[in-house]
Design a protein around this nucleic acid. Structure first.
Lengths: 210, 210
DNA sequence: GTGCATAAGTATACTTAGTGCAATATAGCC
DNA sequence: GGCTATATTGCACTAAGTATACTTATGCAC
């Protein structure tokens, strides 16, 4: 279903991984900004020019590792058109249970190192936010498919949902980065997620003294 | 209160404006990506190096013009600690009434050109999103000052609020960019804002068929 | 006003991300 | 083997941003 395994394809895949691995190894060791594209290319034993054939830019060398999740929320909604928000809530809670990297609640050394790199490198923030923006757009489009929701409501809802998911993930990652184990952080993470989705579903009220 | 008007300060201010004006003129004429820093410096009659003394980077040449509004929501909340969300709502509606640029509902040619430039230049998106991020952070901090709100709630609320405000502003601008006048778009903009803040205050429900 | 410390501005050269293009090598296929 | 498409490469180029050492102008004490 996914590939015709010509030698060509396999080689391309291996080259791509070689570049990516070389890049991350160097970035972990010296920091994103301290490593040049040329150094990555040299370490991966390809020409600089070839590197750009595989990755759109320096940022992509890091961010492609989370690219799969760009439209995850949109996919979840597509599969649960009847009650999107509870579905997203369950999906997120399920992610926490499984310690999925995208929830931020994952302390596997390699994953943690990657997320530390991403979050700890201001240079990468713009790309990261674009990534988020793209996810929001996809979610809005998917929500907009529902005949019960006006396009405007869909866009507003998507904006809110994505912002909450990111805040939750960031907070979780922050604890991992501070050395808390995923297991130890799990209960708080669940409580936070439930609060977040409750606020989404039931509203913020006036935020005044209630 | 703001400046000791030495000749030095005045000259600096004028140089800064000269650079900014030259930059925007060129950007409006040829597009952000089609104009180099060197061209801007030449047009403003300063050296390239001096330009970088005044502006952190090429993006800043454009975005400094909206920098005042970066922490606007935080300021509003600071002034209305008792009921932040209604205050933000009123502030936004007031902005619409006054056709404030930051609401997106402003069709003054210069403002529209600036916003068109910002929104129509993908290169600027990252900086724009960083700007938003910074505003969200400030709002979260300000909300967190309230003893009634947990820090987590403050962060989640800030994320939601900012995302809604941006969506509303973007949608408004979009209509301006399509040639609708601010006056004509006003009623819809108010309705959209009320919907947005209603969703914030009262929640999204399940988003299913209600 | 003169002179000096300080800050603004400049010239120049450098590093690095990213692109265009033409030349070369290699997989897939007959 | 030989042909074709594509992967890869080297080289030259543009442009953003930085380092540094030098020049000019301002503010201020006298």
């Amino acid at each position: 279903m996914e590939e015709q395994t010509g030698l060509r394809e396999r080689k391309k895949q291996r080259t791509r991984e070689a570049i990516s691995n070389a890049a991350l190894e160097l970035f972990f060791e010296h920091g994103f900004d301290q490593v040049s594209i040329s150094q990555v290319a040299a370490a991966a034993e390809v020409s600089r020019r070839t590197l750009f054939a595989y990755f759109r830019g320096k940022d992509d060398l890091v961010l492609h590792r989370i690219a799969d999740h760009e439209h995850e929320s949109a996919r979840v909604v597509r599969a649960h058109r009847d009650a999107p928000l509870p579905a997203l809530r369950e999906h997120f809670l399920d992610g926490l249970r499984r310690h999925e990297p995208i929830t931020g609640l994952c302390d596997l050394p390699q994953v943690l190192a990657l997320y530390r790199l991403i979050m700890g490198t201001p240079t990468l923030l713009p790309s990261l936010l674009r990534f988020r923006e793209s996810g929001e757009l996809a979610l809005a489009a998917e929500l907009g498919e529902s005949p019960d929701l006006s396009p405007l409501t869909a866009r507003l809802a998507a904006a809110q949902i994505v912002s909450v998911q990111w805040r939750l993930s960031m907070d979780n990652h922050h604890r991992m980065a501070n050395g808390v184990s995923a297991t130890d952080a799990y209960p708080d993470a669940v409580a936070a997620a439930e609060l977040g989705f409750d606020l989404l579903m039931n509203g913020l009220g006036t935020l005044g003294k209630s």
